[in-house]
Design a protein around this nucleic acid. Structure first.
Lengths: 221, 221
DNA sequence: GTCACCCGGATTGTTGACAATCCTGTCAGC
DNA sequence: GCTGACAGGATTGTCAACAATCCGGGTGAC
């Protein structure tokens, strides 16, 4: 089932990026230009271009005359990425606290309410969506396009690992509490508090990520 | 004077990146594929690829059917970039403090000595080099490739502005003191201290950057 | 004088063909 | 049985030609 034909270069790159992030293209899987071109209904040159960009982005590795593969992020790299994300998103939370307006406050609290509903209803997919929406909203408020772009790029490299953490028992409830504190500090315009709250949240995430990785090593699967 | 022929795709991209960073290609300057191909002695396809990667990297903007231009970072963007860099490099300093070894300590102190020599001899170019070397060394010690890559990319977008700050009167001496504190805290394995020292250093840099931008606005030149 | 229109040059977008390279399996020699 | 050379196919790298698009200037109507 070939995906819808990509109209522009950017669309194609986005499609490939999502295919990797969603796991439709697996780590270390070879990305053969001719095949991809046929699958997406475009010319090889487009694929070549998209692969070059995804290479630059860190989602794909290319070796001369050997082709491209989906980059397999090692455990160490995953932690590196998560820590870097922590540093940037902490800053973003602080900036959001400085710039927050009344309508922003309303939007943040609305998403938080949605999250609580998902926790009560044990709707994990919905919770995950609301989670992403909240972080996106905070980024929008912070209005730091550079940082947002980088965070997006980092996230796409470790999305698959995130699911392992989200599905841990009791995680959503704890996560909700952490997010509530983030929202409240940002709404209060408390920059240092927002930074601390976001740092605490992502540190907690990082700790669980480490545990998940260690568990997988011991033969989880 | 055409630069040496680029042997590989990566080399070409690097050459273009440096040409932009060094100011040989000015902001908003049109990057005409045919011309660049002739200049660098390669095919248009290579140029096209390199431009796509630099676009992804944020050094170049491309509009469909309109070609590519060197991206002009606005003042606001410059501050965004500097703040993001601050957040990441602060984290890097902390990681370096955790991982530092004896040989690392020696290397750090050697660079510091070099910096002091440049300050005494009023060798601004040398100071700038030593400065870069020190930051590179700290990144090497932190061993966070992801973060290092991002910082490099951010730096390349605002290198030109850095010169304005470095050349301010009294800046090198102050900068030296800041760097000394960074080195000492890292050598002591004092993570929080290293983070604080790096944050102080880059905050000081950021403040001067803001001043330089404001000054330029009032008609400096 | 101004506006709309159109045309030609310049530039980018797209495509297919060919060359270069790498990987795999096979076979001869030891 | 093992090693090395070698052929064949698969895949990427390179290139030039053609198509599509944009931009500027000029022309004519009003």
């Amino acid at each position: 089932m070939p995906p819808a034909r990509a109209s522009t270069q950017n669309d194609l790159t986005t499609q490939l990026r999502e295919a990797i992030a969603r796991g439709r293209l697996l780590p270390n899987e070879r990305l053969i230009e001719t095949d991809l071109a046929a699958t997406y209904g475009v010319n090889r040159a487009h694929i070549r271009m998209a692969l070059a960009m995804l290479d630059q982005e860190g989602l794909v590795v290319r070796e001369r005359n050997r082709g491209a593969r989906v980059r397999a992020v090692s455990d160490d790299e995953a932690l590196e990425i998560a820590e870097t994300r922590l540093a940037i998103e902490t800053m973003i939370a602080g900036q959001a606290a400085r710039r927050v307006t009344d309508s922003d406050r309303k939007a943040l609290r609305a998403i938080l309410t949605r999250m609580r509903g998902c926790v009560d209803g044990e709707d994990y997919a919905g919770f995950s969506d609301a989670n992403a929406a909240l972080h996106r909203e905070i980024q929008r408020i912070a209005a730091n396009a550079t940082a947002s772009r980088i965070v997006a790029s980092l996230k796409s490299q470790i999305v698959r690992l995130q699911y392992r953490v989200i599905l841990l028992p009791g995680r959503p409830a704890l996560s909700l509490a952490e997010h509530r504190r983030i929202v409240e500090t940002i709404c209060a315009g408390d920059r240092a508090g927002a930074e601390a709250a976001m740092r605490a949240h992502l540190t907690s995430f990082l700790r669980l990520l480490k545990q998940a990785i260690a568990a997988a090593h011991h033969g989880g699967f």
